[in-house]
Structure formats: C-alpha cells, structure tokens
Amino acid sequence: MTLSLGPQSAPAVDADVDTLRAALRHQASTVTVVTAPGAPPVGFTATSFTSVSLDPPLVSFCLDVGSTSWPTVSTSRHVAVHLLGEGQRDLAQRFATGGIDRFAAPTRWRPGPEGVPILDGTLAWLLCRVVERVVAGDHVIVLAEPELVRPADAGSPLLRHQGRYVGLDQTGPDRA
C-alpha cells in the first residue's frame, strides 16, 4: 500500500523490515552496555535503554532472544546498565562484537554488588534487579528496578544515529 500525504512529503509505504530499519535510523539513541553475572559474565551494547517509571523506579532494555547473552540474562536476578560517554566508541563497539571475550583487556571492570560486572570509567551506571521479562517478537523487553546508581559528574553521552556512534554537538544555537 502507498499513501500520499501531499506534494511536500514522500509517499508512505508498507513497513517491511528494510523500510522500518531505514526510518528508525533517524532516531538518536543513548548507547549503553548491559552486563550480567555468569561464568563467564556477559555484556552487550544496547541502544534500547529507557526510563519507564520513577514511582516505582523502573527502566527497560531489549535483547534479541538469539543473542549469546540471552541465556544468562534470562535467569539473572541483577544486571548493570552502563551509560557510555562520548569518548567510549571503542567500548561500545567491543560489546557489540560477537565471538570475542568482551571483558578481556583493554576492558576495565570489577565484580560489583550481586556479582554483576561493573565497567570502569562509564558516564554513569545503574545496578538493577530484574522484575519482569516480556517476549515481544524476536526480542525480550527486560524491566528492571534500579537499586544502586552511580551518577555522572559531567560529560556528554554517546549516541547511535544513522548507524554510527556520535556525540552531541554542544556548540549549536540551542546551547544555553
């Protein structure tokens, strides 16, 4: 089906996988790394992280059920969500790469509360208790309650936009 909305806009087309992916590349997303305890520990880059509720405090992220991290996350009681800073493109790429030991050097980390791996030097991190897992298509939405937070002192977030890692342009006219 094609729907035209007038001479100034491109026609709307069916939302197949490729056109949906192309449209969603225009959304800028915060880049996070989610870690979970295990033997070995697991971690992955996620751009689906969002705040869900402040009362009660809840956050969420999504994970592909075919991911090598899913078996561990599917049974983990706790996870950590690390918000990456603008200068952490290499860390984001490392945790997005399959078939490697993501926790080997140069990754700096330590075991945190509940045995959850905590990455050093991230903009902020949240230690969260998993409260629910909701299957949604080929992904699972993980809802979690933050129990500990190490907020950022300062810094700009790393974003994902148009298939690339980018930072905020803080020199534009909207900067106060």
Rank of each mutant, 00 (worst) to 15 (best):
E145V: 02
V31D: 02
P41R: 01
L20C: 12
T68H: 15
S67I: 04
S74M: 05
R160K: 12
W109K: 00
G155P: 07
R94N: 02
V73F: 05
S156A: 14
L119Q: 08
T45I: 03
A136H: 12
D90E: 12
R102Q: 06
R108I: 08
S51D: 08
A23V: 13
P173L: 12
Q27W: 15
G121L: 04
A80C: 09
I118Q: 04
V135L: 13
R110L: 00
S76K: 06
A136W: 13
F103L: 00
T72G: 04
I141S: 08
V140W: 10
G6P: 06
L126S: 01
G38M: 05
L3K: 10
T171R: 13
L58G: 02
G99A: 00
G137C: 03
G66V: 05
P40Q: 02
D101E: 04
L91F: 07
A96P: 01
T75K: 14
H139M: 07
P57M: 08
R133S: 06
F95K: 03
V79N: 10
A136P: 05
L168E: 12
D55I: 06
V131E: 15
D174H: 15
A124Q: 00
P37N: 03
G85I: 00
R160P: 00
V17H: 15
R89N: 09
T97D: 07
Q162G: 13
L168Q: 12
C62E: 06
A15I: 08
P146M: 03
D101Q: 02
D55M: 06
V79E: 10
A176W: 15
V65L: 12
G6E: 09
L20M: 15
D55G: 05
P71H: 06
G115H: 08
D64G: 09
G163V: 05
S60M: 13
G155R: 11
P157T: 00
A105D: 11
Q27S: 14
H139N: 11
T97R: 12
R175C: 04
S67F: 12
P113S: 14
L126H: 09
V42P: 04
A80I: 02
D153S: 11
V149S: 06
D16P: 04
V134W: 11
P37V: 02
V33E: 03
G38S: 03
L168K: 10
S67C: 11
P173C: 09
P40G: 01
V79Q: 09
H78R: 08
A39E: 15
P151C: 01
T50N: 13
D55C: 02
G6V: 05
H161P: 01
H26N: 14
Q170W: 14
D120G: 02
V59S: 06
P173Q: 11
H26L: 14
A136C: 13
P41G: 00
G172N: 14
F103N: 01
W125P: 00
F95H: 01
T72P: 07
P37M: 03
G172R: 13
V135N: 11
P117L: 00
V149H: 11
D14S: 12
R25T: 11
H161S: 12
D64N: 15
V42T: 11
G99Y: 03
P113V: 07
V65Q: 14
S29W: 03
R21T: 08
T32Y: 03
V79A: 10
A80H: 10
A23I: 05
A144L: 01
G38K: 08
G66R: 15
D169T: 10
P151Y: 05
